[in-house]
């Protein structure tokens, strides 16, 4: 089980760094799709010795939504956007990638602190989940495009999903279903919001939403 998880961790870190460093059209949703797929595999590997239909169905649901549906929605939104070049984010591409390195160290340190309490959680996955949460938050805060902020939100969501798969033993069908449904609706709500903003303002740069203050 551990070698598989090691590979997933390596690829998961790779997708996060790719998302931090991307500025090209459409690459964001594609890296996100790959990351969603990887995260969806984690519960199957965790329960490999006693696989139940519940676990399999939930994993498939996650992979379909996060690996296919969400990136597809984002790509569609991307196609309707009027701009054709990426504007430089608040923190540049090099700065963002460099941000990843100390944060990875911080994630390892936090994971070391948590391991004594979470005995059956694999260390590599703990690091990955904490790292994804940080990267998601960073993307939301530093990106100008509403679309990249939604991607950041979904990276954060992936991190929490990995954490729930490793930290809680046993499956929580009803809760997991509810969470999945909420994520599903959230992406559509955010998508519709972006379309509204787009048609009203003619752009999707969130940094121009500054009329309300104080």
């Amino acid at each position: 089980m551990l070698p598989f998880l090691g590979i997933i961790q390596a690829l998961g870190l790779l997708t996060s760094f790719a998302l931090l460093g991307t500025r090209s059209k459409g690459a964001g949703p594609q890296w996100l799709a790959f990351q969603g797929l990887l995260c969806g595999l984690v519960p199957i590997i965790m329960h490999a010795d006693g696989l139940t239909t519940q676990v399999v169905l939930l994993a498939i649901g996650n992979i379909v939504l996060k690996g296919i549906v969400f990136p597809w929605v984002l790509l569609r939104l991307r196609a309707r956007a009027p701009y054709h070049r990426e504007v430089v984010p608040f923190i540049g591409i090099v700065g963002s990638t460099l941000f990843g390195i100390p944060v990875l160290a911080l994630s390892v340190w936090l994971a070391l602190r948590m391991t004594p309490a979470l005995k059956h959680a694999p260390f590599v996955m703990l690091v990955l989940s904490i790292f994804l949460i940080f990267v998601g938050l960073f993307l939301i805060v530093t990106r100008r495009k509403a679309l990249m902020q939604v991607i950041g939100y979904l990276v954060l969501e992936n991190g929490i999903f990995v954490f729930s798969a490793i930290a809680i033993s046993g499956t929580l069908l009803l809760v997991e279903l509810g969470v999945l449904l909420d994520a599903f609706v959230a992406v559509f709500v955010m998508g519709i919001a972006i379309l509204h903003i787009n048609s009203e303002f003619g752009f999707m740069d969130v940094d121009q939403l500054t009329a309300l203050r104080g």
Binding site: I140, L156, V189, E200, V206, L209, A211, L212
Partner: peptide, 22 residues
């Protein structure tokens, strides 16, 4: 009633509260 101000408020609400809820 979608207009500039209400959409701005809605987007901030959606994003900040989604992070909080996460």
């Amino acid at each position: 009633y979608p207009n500039r101000l209400s959409l701005e408020a809605m987007w901030k609400y959606l994003l900040i509260c989604s992070i909080g809820i996460a």
